[in-house]
């Protein structure tokens, strides 16, 4: 059987909120090392990769590898019934066709069990190559969210450029143009307010803003976001999940015809 007890249940709620509009159905792959998920959006332009390590759970048991086929909208409905401070336990039998979500209130005076039907999903795992990215920028996640949202009101695509000076976001549309530059900034009081740029080579790529916007639904998971870019490769937008792992989004760049 599989059982995972997560003291900070709100993390799972936030993960679902971040991906439920991008991906419809996906397998949660459970093994003795944790829970992993890899799924493409319906148009196969973006890829989501989630890792929740066993060590981040208060209790974790997985006797044999299980692929739990889940409709994310339905799981989100179930998790919305959990309080933000609740402890959430996931449970599934080896041969079962359901998953149980147990919610415990912080002072243990309310225990809820929600049982959700599983589905059979044929999923193909994509091989994501290990890449030494040409540019890696870490910046406040709320700032990234704000920039992407602001640019979306002006254009459909954004050019993201990284030089040793910083990262720039540019767009253009019927009403005009916009260009935002965030400079490397390591002299701020709080580490989470820093913008850091690691660069091997300047890089500039074009992306659809609607996907970047969707990724920023994960902002609540982490105060910082890391953007990894290389010429002619998908961007990686990574939100680290404290003590547990990460939620990564990959987005294919737009290319010249």
């Amino acid at each position: 059987m599989f059982e995972g007890r997560l003291l900070q249940g709100s993390l799972l709620k936030k993960v679902l909120e971040a991906i439920k509009d991008l991906v419809t159905d996906t397998n949660f792959d459970c093994s003795e090392t944790g829970i992993a998920l890899q799924a493409m959006d319906s148009s196969h332009v973006a890829l989501v990769s989630l890792l929740l390590k066993d060590t981040g759970f208060d209790h974790f048991r997985c006797d044999r590898n299980l692929a739990l086929g889940i409709n994310l909208q339905n799981m989100s409905k179930m998790l919305k019934c959990a309080g933000n401070d609740d402890i959430i336990t996931l449970k599934a039998e080896d041969e079962g066709d359901t998953i149980t979500f147990m919610f415990e209130s912080p002072n243990q005076d309310k225990i809820s069990d929600f049982e959700m039907k599983l589905m059979d999903i044929d999923s193909e795992h994509l091989g994501i190559p290990d890449t030494d990215y040409q540019a890696i920028v870490t910046m406040p996640s709320a700032e990234f969210q704000r920039i992407v949202r602001d640019l979306s009101s002006i254009g459909d695509t954004a050019v993201i450029g990284v030089t040793k000076e910083g990262i720039s976001f540019s767009t253009g549309g019927d009403i005009g143009k916009a260009n935002i530059v965030c400079r490397q900034n390591t002299n701020v009081d709080k580490e989470e307010d820093q913008t850091t740029v690691e660069i091997h080579e300047p890089v500039s790529l074009t992306f659809a803003l609607r996907y970047l916007n969707s990724f920023t639904k994960a902002t609540a998971l982490s105060p910082q976001v890391t953007l990894s870019l290389s010429k002619e490769l998908p961007i990686v937008v990574e939100y680290k999940i404290e003590k547990m792992g990460f939620l990564r989004f990959y987005l294919a760049p737009k290319i010249e015809e």
Binding site: H44, L126, G127, L251
Partner: peptide
């Protein structure tokens, strides 16, 4: 104009 390729053209099946 630019084209939007699929993520599959970067990451093969594994």
């Amino acid at each position: 104009d630019r084209q939007q390729p699929s993520i599959l053209s970067f990451f093969g099946g594994g």
